[in-house]
Design a protein around this nucleic acid. Structure first.
Length: 261
DNA sequence: ATGTCTCTACTATAGAGA
């Protein structure tokens, strides 16, 4: 079982790159974030030509998540179920899609960045993380097999960013952010990449600005968190960093995770 | 080094978000 998560920063701008990557890697599931379009303009036909069907939770301009799969998946949730309704009753931003495939739940998530909108924007990020933690605890209590993967916009430790990329005030590494991420681990989940590579320098994102990629000034903010039995099945987990070297790349690279059977 | 990319909007540049 081979899955991947990838923030593509506009699926319409990156359709050819995603197709090339699907052809080369042949994952069973690909979880996409920041597709930045609504379902009618999602390039599903290009993926269908490669044998992948799509489930899309779209939004105009920003956000948006989708799951590509070679086999049908069962859609469980199109938004994070524990997230409180918006004050004005507006629909939630398109940041979560949960599907079941071969008995495993896959939560595809795009967590709010939290650096815009001042303290209210940061509070919204924390509320989103609380809801994610609630969902994880619920699934753990139900003894489900599951994977929560995507762009967490969380830099878990000081080993997960290159010097000079983040300030201590950045929402990606503020103490409350890290505390809530670690709470997923204390609840019983496993950070797939770090479980296999506790000390390596590993990044999944390099900003477009300031020559971050050629200077390898990256961050590790795309994660796959595993329930206990999925952690036992874990075989490999690593960002495909060379994808960042392609022409017109996303600022994030795919993180691939493989499981036994 | 306030350095890039993507989106939208009173179609062409500027603002927002990352």
């Amino acid at each position: 079982m081979k899955i991947a998560t990838w923030n593509v920063n506009s699926v319409r701008q990156r359709t050819d790159l995603v197709c090339d990557w699907l052809r080369a890697q042949q994952p069973d599931l690909l979880l996409l974030q920041e597709i930045k379009c609504e379902e009618p303009s999602f390039p599903g036909a290009a993926f269908a030509a490669l044998g992948y069907q799509s489930v899309v939770v779209g939004q105009k301009s920003y956000n948006g998540v989708a799951v590509l799969s070679r086999e049908p998946v069962e859609v469980m949730h199109r938004f994070l179920p524990a997230l409180p309704p918006t004050p004005d009753g507006a629909p939630h931003q398109a940041r979560y899609l949960e599907v079941r495939w071969r008995g495993v739940l896959f939560g595809n998530l795009y967590l709010p960045n939290g650096n815009s909108g001042g303290e209210a924007g940061y509070a919204a990020k924390l509320a989103w993380m609380e809801a994610l933690l609630h969902r994880a605890r619920e699934l753990l209590a139900a003894d489900e097999d599951f994977v929560m993967a995507g762009d967490y916009n969380v830099c878990p430790t000081d080993a997960d960013f290159a010097p000079g990329t983040l300030s201590g005030a950045d929402a990606l590494m503020r103490p409350e952010t890290r505390r809530l991420f670690q709470a997923l681990r204390w609840a019983g989940m496993t950070d797939a990449v770090r479980a296999l590579r506790p000390r390596e320098k590993i990044y999944s994102f390099w900003d477009y600005q300031a020559g971050c990629w050629p200077r390898d000034m990256g961050l590790r903010i795309d994660h796959a968190m595993l329930s206990p039995r999925m952690a036992e099945r874990l075989e490999e987990a690593l960002p495909d960093r060379m994808e960042r070297d392609k022409p017109q790349p996303s600022d994030h690279v795919p993180v691939m995770v493989t499981f036994s059977s």
